[in-house]
Amino acid sequence: MTTAAATPHTTLQRVAVYCASNEGAHPDYVHAAHALGTLLANRGIAMVYGGGRTGLMGALADAAMAAGGEVIGVMPHGLVEREVAHRGITSLQVVDSMHERKAMIAELADAFIALPGGIGTLEELFETWTWATLGVHRKPLGLLDTRQFWEPLLSLVARLDQEGFLRGAPTEWLVRHDDPAHLLDRLTTFAPPHVRRWLSLRDT
């Protein structure tokens, strides 16, 4: 599996995890979420996530808490009021909107990991990924590739490149592995690629 070039070891204090509020169709997804939550706690890395108590979100948070980790949830008022918030985590930050939620998660995190998920997970992944390619941040972005979940997405990105819709190589920002420990190791040695200059209005 491909990854960015290595650099000296970087300490990660907090990792943001994007994942689903349901469990998916195969138990491997829950097992992977549980393994990642346990791993983060064992390595002394705080976890930042959407604050939910169900699905992969809940499995991830429960595993991290059970292993003695720190878990920070960020959730808008509307979702808290629907009683989907996890009340057993270290801290639950309640914000006014989904935009504030994503901004706070991005600000708190030193790196990002996307687990398999639905359109909400994809939206979070693509926004964070876009920010990286534009130079908004230089934080590593990992894909936990359970059951080769991300393969179709990366094939689509390759097609976008072939058809001339991409500038540069956005996949340089991605670190991908199916094993949580190997993925986390690669995130700590991530070297941010050069941010290419985008066309300005004067270039068009």
Results as ranks from 00 to 15, higher is better:
Met1Val: 13
Met1Ile: 12
Met1Thr: 12
Thr2Ile: 11
Thr2Ala: 13
Thr3Arg: 14
Ala4Met: 03
Ala5Asn: 10
Ala6Gly: 04
Ala6Asp: 13
Thr7His: 09
His9Leu: 14
Thr10Cys: 10
Leu12Val: 02
Arg14Phe: 00
Arg14Cys: 03
Arg14Asn: 07
Tyr18Phe: 14
Ser21Trp: 04
Asn22Ser: 15
Asn22Gly: 06
Glu23Val: 12
Val30Tyr: 09
His31Tyr: 06
Ala35His: 00
Leu36Tyr: 00
Gly37His: 00
Thr38Lys: 10
Thr38Glu: 14
Thr38His: 04
Leu40Arg: 03
Ala41Phe: 01
Ala41Leu: 01
Arg43Phe: 00
Ile45Ala: 04
Ala46Lys: 01
Met47Val: 10
Val48Trp: 01
Tyr49Gln: 01
Gly50His: 03
Gly51Asn: 01
Ala59Ile: 03
Ala61Leu: 05
Ala61Val: 10
Asp62Ser: 13
Asp62Lys: 10
Met65Thr: 14
Ala66Ile: 11
Ala67Trp: 00
Ala67Pro: 02
Gly68Tyr: 00
Gly68Ala: 11
Val71Thr: 07
Gly73Trp: 05
Met75Asn: 04
His77Val: 13
His77Ser: 12
Leu79Gly: 04
Val80Pro: 04
Arg82Ser: 15
Glu83Ile: 05
Arg87Ala: 15
Gly88Asp: 15
Gly88Leu: 13
Ile89Val: 05
Ile89Ala: 02
Ser91Pro: 05
Gln93Glu: 15
Val94Ile: 11
Val94Thr: 09
Asp96Leu: 05
Ser97Leu: 00
Met98Asn: 02
His99Met: 07
Arg101Asn: 03
Lys102Trp: 04
Lys102His: 06
Ala103Lys: 06
Ala103Asn: 05
Ile105Arg: 01
Ile105Gln: 14
Ile105Leu: 13
Glu107Tyr: 08
Ala109Ser: 09
Ala109Ile: 02
Ala111Ile: 02
Ala111Ser: 06
Ala114Gly: 12
Leu115Thr: 07
Gly117Leu: 02
Ile119Cys: 07
Glu123Thr: 05
Phe126Trp: 13
Phe126Tyr: 13
Glu127Asp: 08
Thr128Gln: 13
Thr128Asn: 14
Trp129Tyr: 07
Thr130Cys: 07
Trp131Thr: 07
Val136Ile: 15
His137Val: 12
Arg138Trp: 10
Gly142Trp: 10
Leu144Ile: 06
Asp145Trp: 12
Asp145Asn: 15
Thr146Ala: 00
Arg147Val: 06
Gln148Asp: 15
Phe149Leu: 03
Leu153Gly: 01
Leu153Cys: 03
Leu154Trp: 04
Leu154Pro: 02
Leu154Cys: 11
Ser155Tyr: 11
Ser155Arg: 09
Arg159Ser: 10
Gln162Ala: 15
Leu166Lys: 01
Arg167Leu: 15
Ala169His: 14
Pro170Ala: 02
Pro170Asp: 03
Thr171Val: 09
Leu174Tyr: 09
Leu174Asp: 09
Arg176Trp: 04
His177Phe: 11
Asp178Pro: 10
Asp179Asn: 13
Asp179Val: 08
His182Leu: 15
His182Thr: 12
Asp185Ala: 13
Arg186Cys: 10
Arg186Ala: 14
Leu187Asp: 00
Leu187Cys: 00
Thr188Phe: 02
Thr189Lys: 10
Thr189Pro: 12
Phe190Cys: 06
Val195Tyr: 00
Arg197Ser: 12
Trp198Ile: 09
Leu199Tyr: 13
Ser200Pro: 04
Arg202Gln: 14
